[in-house]
Design a protein around this nucleic acid. Structure first.
Length: 584
RNA sequence: CGGGGUGUGGCGCAGAUGGUAGCGCGCUGUGUCGGGGACGCAGAGGCCCGGAGUUCAAGUCUCCGCACUCCGACCA
């Protein structure tokens, strides 16, 4: 590609609405452009990189025998009603009507569509197992799109679905997918961790998230260096502290004026936070998003409530739980803001973290202004409607597998795999017959990769203050030839020669033949992040060029032939990203 | 959804106390340049987000919308 013909307009200044590096750089390099909040289009450079990621995904899916298809991004409401997700998915599902008023939605994910697709023509165990996938634009009407491609309302996703005869077969496919995901993200040059995850709105029994490590990521994970355990913080089980063997002391109500927070109470009474009970008040919503109940959740004062565990314990979808409107709940349930405890509450579901049942003589709100109880004990003084683990695991807490303190990290969720089990085959009646004519539900798995988000994750992990540093495997172009002085025929001729030679070597190469000053060209080459840069300048008469890799700081003056040879060699070695597979 | 911020040429911004718009970048032409976002000269380009008010007069003041964005909630 001759850059004089390229339609591209790089930006010198940081766009005013971009805050994270991937967003800033992708916009500045004119790889993406915003259409509306959370809606982006891809310009030539960005689209090339996107397609490279797609291609890596495609190759690895094909390698494990998954078959690529392509269905519509629009699906009829009936399918979603059949599975129950027309309601369960919540406002994030982007609903549209046709001219006759018939309901549709833009596909947020395609479990229903794929299940429907195969249920009519899958009748025998002999047809199983198989997997289908597509690479397609997905739509989720996010409450808060942000950070460019990181969380957008329209995004490119690879979604795969497996159809298996039994749980063992599903396990096998799941493991193949899991391994393929590792290969895909390594080939893209990402530093990532697979972690145990919650199944969320997709459902199912078992799930792993692939998290690309990044400070600006929205996922929070914990992992154990000792035993290798890794999970999203919301998913991670917590180990309860051992039960106390203290004697139960008599319950006592004490005056604690103005102590609305755990810190204040603990200070005022001279207690450790572990001797207090923290209350969090929620309200639950029905399908019309109207309040239909209240929940009081209790954890030890030093802990945080994990709302994912809480909704799972309550058996409600995530969107149906939110913090309570305090006054309303006080009126309905008898709690008192800042002084709520597990006693004297009524008309609400009381959820008690399992750890509290073993703790003795704790301090909790008395549901009366400026008063707390001390020496409160589970079983004697209060009970819970639900008693289970609702704590958030934090850095430094004990690993649920081996007890070593875990570490925390942030990351970008670039992929997630689910064992769906029979959730969809049951609601949508997808069955097969075994060799004895007996009907069984099909076991399913679902496997997603956020392709456009992966692009953002690569940039997050590969950039410097000058711009992007693409790994060769996902670079829009692999090499760039910069002509320092366009008017110098020696330079243009040599650059042209190198250009042709690289093309004939199969290298994807940009020739910067624009009538610009060298500074502009160098800056663009670095902003765009092209892995190999060959500069044709004052040495042109002697056939000497400058050879530099974007990811390294040293430049070398070498003969043009050698530059071509070295560029082609490096690019051919790194082009498919497989050289990364040996790393770990 | 709650709380904040911002909407002014393509982009980034400035426009006290109301008087009909300016700067930098970019763009067009031209000349001098040519190894790190050059300089000179000459230009083009704006219903100041929308609507309704107040006023002799509104980018500026008042309401009401809308959009984008940040923090949180939500989502994954």
């Amino acid at each position: 590609m001759r850059m004089s013909k390229l339609h591209m307009n790089t930006l010198k200044e940081v766009p005013n609405d971009a805050v994270v590096p991937s967003h800033i750089l992708l916009v500045r390099a004119d790889m993406i452009r915003q259409g509306a909040s959370g809606i982006y289009g891809f310009m030539h450079m960005g689209y090339r990189s996107l397609r490279k990621i797609e291609q890596i995904v495609r190759e690895e899916m094909d390698a494990i025998g998954a078959q690529e298809i392509h269905v519509s991004a629009i699906s009829p409401a009936e399918l979603w009603q059949e599975s129950g997700r027309w309601n369960d998915y919540g406002p994030e599902l982007w609903r549209i009507k046709d001219r006759n008023g018939r309901d549709f939605c833009l596909g947020a994910t395609h479990e229903e569509v794929f299940t429907d697709l195969i249920r009519h023509d899958t009748s025998s165990y002999r047809q199983l197992p198989f997997s289908l996938y597509q690479i397609q634009t997905k739509y989720r009407d996010e409450a808060r799109p942000r950070f460019g491609l990181m969380r957008s309302r329209e995004f490119v996703m690879k979604d795969a679905y497996s159809f298996n005869a039994d749980p063992e077969s599903l396990d096998e496919t799941y493991n193949e997918m899991f391994d393929a995901y590792g290969v895909i993200f390594r080939r893209c040059g990402l530093d990532f961790r697979p972690v145990e995850a919650d199944t969320g709105a997709i459902g199912g029994s078992n799930s792993h998230e692939f998290t690309a490590l990044s400070e600006v990521g929205e996922s929070s994970i914990v992992y154990c260096d000792e035993c290798g355990y890794a999970a999203t913080d919301e998913r991670a089980e917590c180990t309860d502290d051992p039960a106390s063997d203290e004697e139960m002391r008599p319950l006592e109500k004490v005056l604690t004026p103005g102590t609305k927070t755990i810190e204040m109470v603990a200070d005022y009474l001279g207690l450790d936070k572990t001797q207090t009970i923290k209350a969090l008040l929620f309200q639950t919503l029905d399908e019309e998003m109207k309040v239909n109940g209240y929940v009081a959740a209790f954890v030890r004062g030093d802990r945080e409530v994990n709302t994912i565990k809480l909704v799972n314990a309550l058996g409600i979808p995530e969107y149906a739980l939110e913090f309570a409107e305090e006054e309303n709940m006080e009126e309905a349930c008898g709690c008192v803001g800042g002084f709520t405890g597990p006693m004297h509450l009524h008309d609400c579901t009381i959820v008690v973290d399992s750890e509290l049942t073993g703790m003795k003589n704790l301090c909790a709100g008395a549901c009366e202004k400026d008063h707390h109880y001390i020496n409160m004990n589970y079983g004697r003084d209060y009970d819970g409607d639900i008693v289970t683990d609702i704590k958030l695991l934090k850095e430094g807490d004990r690993c649920p597998k081996c007890g070593t303190p875990v570490r925390g990290a942030r990351g970008i969720e670039v992929g997630q795999v689910f064992k769906l089990g029979t959730k969809y085959s049951e609601s949508m009646h997808a069955v097969y017959k075994d060799e004895h004519q007996k009907e069984h539900l099909i076991w399913m798995g679902s496997y997603g990769i956020g392709v456009s988000r992966t692009l953002a994750a690569v940039v997050e992990q590969h950039h410097d203050d000058k711009g992007i540093i693409w790994p060769v495997a996902v670079a829009p172009y692999e090499a760039i030839i910069t002509i320092v002085k366009n008017r110098d025929e020696k330079q243009t001729e040599l650059a042209e020669k190198i250009y042709q030679e690289l093309l004939s070597e199969g290298v994807e190469v940009l020739l910067d033949d624009r009538n610009e000053r060298p500074g502009v060209k160098f800056n663009d080459a670095e902003l765009l992040g092209i892995p190999v840069a060959i500069t044709v300048g004052r040495g042109a008469a002697e056939d000497i060029v400058e050879y530099k890799l974007r990811r390294e700081s040293e430049k070398e003056e070498i003969p043009a032939d050698e530059a071509v040879r070295r560029a082609a060699e490096l690019i051919n070695r790194e082009r498919d990203g497989r050289f990364n597979l040996g790393e770990k």
